[in-house]
Simulated assay, not measured.
Amino acid sequence: MDQDTAEATARPSARDRLLDAADELFSRDGIARTSVDQVLHHAHVAPATLYAHFGGKDGLIAAALQRRLDRWEQVWKEAVDAAAAPAEKLLALFDAVSAYRDRYTPGRGCAFLATSTELPDLDHPARAVIEAESTLLLTRLNQLAETVTTEDPAALAGNVLLVYDGAMANLQRGRTPDPLGHGKALARCLIQNAIETEQ
């Protein structure tokens, strides 16, 4: 295989380049401030290719967010599977964010919350992805909390989610040195309190 063939083989597809560009630019600059032309220029793709794959900017937004959700779900599952004790599996949420940010586009905070704020229209195709992410968070946290306490696992899951949302907001503000570490420490206290209450 010659060098030109190897480079062509290694280069991501036009669809992936569009998704990569959208993920990076939407996360960095926001959806409203990012034009289709900017995405096309960043991805080195012709307009017809974008419309053929996604139908337009709205479809691209939804597809980029869905890919992020798929990746996030997998990274979080890996973090849970790597944790030994039930409490650590519940706390793995915070480790998963760090792992995701190391592996993929970091962003300034939670892409799902940011997209929800930028796209209040309930009929936008990205809304279904935002709802799916919320459902994933609630469902998985509740399942994990049930292995930690039988007293009120839903309350524990809700409290951990509240701390998580605060940590993600602090990532966006950029004023706390280690918002994920602080969030994990606070969540650990909540878990310990729930365990002690049950005893």
Rank of each mutant, 00 (worst) to 15 (best):
M1W: 02
Q3S: 07
D4K: 11
D4H: 13
A8Q: 09
A8E: 10
A8L: 14
A10Q: 15
A14C: 01
R15K: 10
L18P: 08
L18Y: 03
L19A: 11
A21M: 12
A21H: 12
D23W: 00
E24M: 07
S27L: 04
R28C: 05
G30F: 08
I31H: 14
T34M: 00
V36L: 11
Q38L: 09
Q38G: 12
L40V: 04
H41E: 11
H41N: 01
V45W: 07
A46H: 15
T49Y: 09
T49V: 15
F54T: 06
G56A: 10
K57P: 03
L60Q: 04
I61G: 07
I61V: 15
A62T: 07
A64E: 09
R67M: 09
R67D: 13
R68C: 03
R71G: 00
K77H: 13
A82S: 09
A82V: 05
A83C: 08
A83G: 12
A83Y: 10
A83K: 07
A84M: 06
A85L: 08
A85W: 07
P86L: 07
A87M: 00
L90R: 03
L90N: 08
L91H: 06
L91S: 08
L91P: 09
A92P: 04
L93Q: 08
V97D: 09
V97Y: 09
A99G: 02
Y100W: 06
R101L: 01
G107L: 04
G107S: 01
G109D: 11
F112R: 06
L113Y: 13
A114W: 13
T115W: 02
T115E: 04
E118R: 06
D121I: 09
L122R: 12
D123V: 14
D123S: 15
H124Y: 11
H124D: 08
P125T: 05
P125C: 12
A126I: 00
I130R: 06
I130C: 14
E131K: 01
S134P: 08
S134H: 15
L137T: 10
T139E: 14
R140W: 06
L141Q: 10
L141Y: 02
N142W: 04
Q143D: 15
L144R: 07
A145F: 06
T150R: 15
E151I: 10
D152R: 14
D152P: 05
P153R: 01
L156S: 10
L161D: 06
L162P: 00
V163F: 10
N170R: 12
N170I: 04
Q172R: 11
Q172F: 11
T176S: 05
L180F: 01
L180T: 07
L180N: 01
G181L: 10
G183W: 01
K184G: 09
K184M: 13
A185L: 08
A185E: 14
C189F: 10
I191R: 13
I191H: 11
N193H: 08
N193G: 01
A194Y: 02
I195S: 09
E196A: 14
T197C: 00
